[in-house]
């Protein structure tokens, strides 16, 4: 029992962590928290199921197409919901615009795809029991993603430009960095990461339009715990959340485990609004 709690806890935790990284990737270049993060995860599952089961494509092309579609949706989000409100960031209009785009995505999926959970194919057909691919695949993808991002941010010029923009947007612009293009690129990247989360977790979560708001919330918790923009914090927070949730599931039952998660989330947030590894608030006057 313990083994299966750990296996499923790590698996969903990995998906939450990836959604958390999706939030962070968008936040880093734009200072915007976007409600589309969870929807991208949902779409990863839906597109995956669409391309493989409905259209009959092999796994790899289906994965590439899924990533491309979600990256495109990321870019559209940037153009429609983020760029127009960046000038007045302090009014927090992005909360409304990204919420609107997230709802458009969700409702469109419900109407055009299905309002019922649809099956997601086995990808590699490896493992069984607690070693089933549906448990270890999200974890592996999460680890690979974080390694890939570390490589990007530490070893490539584009990655360091992301870091620079995240730290001091004004100085980055003054230096002549193509800030707008980099922001678009980061939204595309976030789209792909969200898609990976949904694709890797597809066998657990299925292709279901209502996963969007769920992933939005559970993917946000690791960010809130780990501190905005902190990917390592998000991974730790994600795994902790996944384990806690699955343990609560087992101990008190599915519905009250959500209550437990929510209560814990509120308590932690109120105690440490900046997250466990967060930065200080900006000056106001």
């Amino acid at each position: 029992m313990l083994a299966s709690i750990i296996a499923s806890g790590l698996a969903v935790g990995a998906v939450y962590a990836l959604i958390g990284i999706t939030y962070n990737t968008m936040f880093a270049t734009s200072r915007v928290m976007s409600f589309t993060a969870g929807q991208l995860g949902m779409l990863g599952g839906v597109f995956g199921s669409l391309f493989t089961l409905r259209l009959g494509l092999p796994i790899l092309p289906a994965l590439v197409l899924t990533l491309a579609c979600c990256a495109l949706i990321g870019v559209v989000t940037e153009i429609v919901a983020v760029r127009p409100v960046l000038k007045s960031l302090d009014q927090h209009l992005y909360v409304l615009t990204t919420l609107a785009v997230a709802l458009l995505i969700q409702h469109m999926t419900a109407m055009e795809w299905s309002t019922e959970p649809q099956p997601f194919p086995r990808l590699l057909d490896l493992g069984s029991g607690i070693w089933d691919e549906k448990y270890w695949l999200p974890v592996a993808v999460c680890i690979l993603t974080i390694l890939g991002l570390e490589y990007l941010y530490r070893r490539t010029l584009v990655g360091r430009a992301f870091v620079a923009i995240a730290e001091d947007n004004f100085a980055a612009r003054a230096l002549g960095l193509p800030e707008r293009n980099l922001r678009i690129a980061s939204y595309a990247l976030a789209g792909a990461i969200g898609a990976l989360a949904g694709f890797a977790g597809g066998q657990l979560l299925l292709a279901f339009f209502a996963n969007g708001p769920l992933l939005n919330f559970y993917g946000f918790i690791p960010v809130a715990l780990g501190g905005l923009g902190n990917n390592r914090g998000a991974v730790i927070g994600g795994f902790l959340l996944g384990l806690f949730q699955q343990a609560a599931n087992f101990l008190v039952g599915g519905i009250f485990s959500s209550v437990a998660v929510f209560t814990l989330f509120i308590i932690v947030l109120l105690a440490a609004p900046q997250g466990m590894f967060g930065a200080q608030a900006a000056r106001r006057v």
């Binding site: 360091r160 870091v163 620079a164 730290e167 001091d168 004004f170 100085a171 980055a172 003054a174």
Partner: peptide, 12 residues
């Protein structure tokens, strides 16, 4: 333009 306040990127 070298802006005021020695704003270099501290993380890299």
């Amino acid at each position: 333009h070298v802006i005021e306040g020695h704003r270099v990127f501290t993380q890299i």
